[in-house]
């Protein structure tokens, strides 16, 4: 599973302050730290801190890339901000995200094609998040079809089945697992899958435990990537171990260190 490090987000106070004061220190520290712990992408989200999201996104992308060689995952509902980020990305980035809503898909897949970007597609539409696996998969198929229509390789599409907190939508858990499995049958090659990991534990008491158990269960069901806390040692160790058990990496005694040091 690829970890998309979630820490560069204007929802965090230090990042909000960094954006406001144009001081890259905190952003670059987190960029370096997440890279050193084995994250594969850096999520970049300007958050609610500023009104000019376009220039904030551009600035965050620029300073993050000065500190890290990881590709970026541009996280915003403001597509102008995402496009501003794409313009300054030094390597193909990931767009986070687009729902299965036609005019949004038109805009996002067009951008993805222009900038050779990957796309996170959400299994939801105007009506919200479906309750069962079948409806999620149907929306995933719409995303696959639109992606293909723009000539984008399906392997550049990451479907997010959308996870609800386990204390609120407990019945969604098995549906998400089922969706992860079925998405792999949609096309050949199939799309990839991603989740926002910490959604599962919103409002619960032992969030880290729930996050990492969900991560390994989802991996066993084919999950490819997660937007997650890339500095959670226990999560990293759990993911590294799941990769061994799923025969994705060759075992050696120091396998956790190898996973962490993959960016070195």
């Amino acid at each position: 599973m690829i970890i998309i490090g979630e820490r560069i987000n204007g929802m965090f106070r230090d990042i909000a302050k960094a954006i406001r004061e144009k001081d890259p220190t905190a952003v670059q520290e987190w960029a370096r730290k997440q890279e050193a712990m084995g994250s594969g992408y850096l999520d970049i989200n300007v958050g609610p801190a500023v009104s000019d999201r376009v220039s904030a996104m551009r600035w965050l992308c620029e300073v993050a890339q000065e500190a890290s060689k990881l590709p970026l995952c541009l996280d915003s509902t403001d597509y102008d901000a995402i496009e501003a980020g794409l313009e300054v990305c030094k390597q193909p980035a990931m767009i986070n995200s687009v729902p299965a809503v036609q005019e949004k898909m038109d805009r996002v897949f067009q951008m993805a094609s222009k900038y050779n970007a990957e796309v996170i597609g959400l299994a939801m539409n105007e009506e919200g998040i479906p309750k069962d696996a079948e409806s999620r998969v149907a929306l995933a198929m719409e995303l696959v079809a639109n992606c293909d229509a723009h000539g984008i390789p399906i392997s550049n599409l990451y479907i997010d089945p959308l996870v609800l907190p386990c204390n609120v939508g407990q019945d969604h858990g098995p549906e998400v697992m089922e969706t992860l499995r079925q998405i792999k049958l949609l096309s050949d090659p199939p799309p990839k899958t991603v989740v926002g990991l910490s959604n599962i534990s919103q409002g619960t008491k032992d969030r880290d435990l729930i996050n990492r158990i969900f991560a390994v269960m989802a991996m066993a069901n084919g999950l490819d990537a997660a937007i997650a806390d890339g500095c959670d040692e226990e999560l990293i160790a759990a993911v590294a171990t799941a990769r061994i058990i799923l025969n994705m990496d060759i075992y050696c005694d120091s396998y956790v260190d190898v996973f962490k040091n993959q960016n070195l």
């Binding site: 060759i250 075992y251 005694d253 120091s254 260190d257 070195l264």
Partner: peptide, 17 residues
């Protein structure tokens, strides 16, 4: 032994990358 092959490379690289 593939696991030892990998581990040994790690041990050596820990002495000097």
């Amino acid at each position: 032994d593939i696991n030892i092959a990998k581990q040994l490379n790690i041990l050596i690289s820990e002495m000097s990358t």
